[in-house]
């Protein structure tokens, strides 16, 4: 009940206060504070952390998750993953990992880079995320398509990452990708960092292709490597859109290496939603714990401390541990 209304009622009938004191239930529905605090009489938690409220929060989270799956189907590219990945950093971090284990640096090869770009463009064009294309094309087909004659070759894929360091770290943490990253049989590497829309989400695909040329004399020189890196910088930045890309064979050099910036960053949005719900419920549980102790309210409920503890663990996990990105 608004304060003015209380005052008006008291002015109209001064004895009403006595009535309210004797019959607190008559104004209980106006006791807004018990949405946030445990009730000393009913010995229940605040209504905002009652079982019904928790059920409502769960339903809301499910609805939001469903909406995030549906929106990209109707408005492709609105949701996505912001990223700032570039080939120079990928090469640097890859060679740092190799250097740490005593392996020689990989040279950036123009043909392997073109093959990686062709693979990335093909994945956006046909909307797949796999080492083997729906038409059966394998990574080796893209490498041979650039006339790179190899004796050893390999491929690492990554998507939805934010930075170059995260990409290389993720490959390093995965045993199969690590074996490529630290492969002693490889002399050269090629990268593609391509922004586009896949399954309705704007994202950045990273393709890493490894190789050892059949002729050792064919290994890229420092000058060639520098040329590839310079070429990447000077390329026209074109963000490919699903179904409208030119094929890599026609125009393999046009690669989007600008930072991807969708209207809504899914990573930030989902983290914020989880942290908001978790933080809200956690705060009310903390208030419940403090207020119940202060007022000596012995509630007939589950352990508030245990609920708060597990929520804090989950919030810490979401905040510090969970990162976006998938490797393949």
């Amino acid at each position: 009940m608004p304060f003015n209304l209380f005052r008006k009622k008291i002015q109209e009938n001064p004895t009403i206060i006595k009535y309210w004191r004797k019959n607190p239930k008559s104004i209980e529905k106006y006791q807004f504070i018990y949405h946030f605090l445990p009730h000393p009489k009913t010995k229940r938690r605040a209504s905002l952390i009652s079982n019904k409220a928790i059920f409502l929060y769960c339903s809301l989270i499910i609805l939001i998750a469903v909406a995030f799956r549906i929106i990209p189907k109707f408005a492709p590219g609105v949701l996505g993953y912001a990223s700032n990945i570039n080939i120079k950093d990928l090469l640097e971090y890859t060679n740092k990992k190799r250097g740490d284990t005593g392996l020689s640096d990989l040279r950036l090869n123009a043909k392997l880079t073109a093959a990686a770009q062709a693979k990335a463009a093909d994945m956006f064009k046909d909307g797949y995320w796999s080492h083997v294309a729906p038409d059966g094309a394998e990574p080796w087909d893209f490498i041979l398509g650039q006339n790179y004659d190899y004796i050893y070759a390999g491929e690492n894929l990554a998507k939805n990452f934010s930075t170059s360091k995260e990409v290389v770290e993720a490959w390093f943490k995965s045993p199969s990708h690590k074996s490529n990253l630290l492969g002693a049989n490889y002399d050269e590497v090629g990268f593609a960092v391509v922004n586009g829309v896949m399954n309705g989400y704007e994202t950045t695909l990273v393709v890493q292709m490894f190789g050892r040329p059949r002729q050792p004399s064919m290994v890229a020189s420092v000058y060639e490597e520098k040329n590839v890196l310079e070429g990447q910088k000077s390329e026209t930045l074109v963000a490919p859109v699903q179904g409208s890309q030119t094929s890599a064979a026609e125009e393999p050099a046009k690669v989007a290496i600008a930072p991807a910036s969708p209207k809504v960053d899914v990573t930030i949005a989902t983290k914020s939603i989880s942290l908001a719900f978790g933080g809200f419920v956690g705060s009310l549980l903390a208030v419940d714990l403090f207020y119940s102790k202060k007022k000596g309210i012995n509630k007939l409920t589950g352990q508030t401390f245990a609920h708060l503890f597990i929520l804090l663990v989950v919030i810490a996990g979401i905040w510090f541990v969970l990162k976006p990105g998938i490797v393949l």
Binding site: N51, I54, Y57, C58, I61, T270, F277, G302, L311, V314
Partner: peptide, 22 residues
């Protein structure tokens, strides 16, 4: 009380699932 723990269990899973599934 049993429902309460089930609901909190579901809530913490959904908080993680929302972040992990995207």
């Amino acid at each position: 009380i049993a429902y309460e723990y089930i609901l909190f269990g579901i809530l913490v899973f959904l908080l993680l699932f929302t972040v992990l599934s995207f």
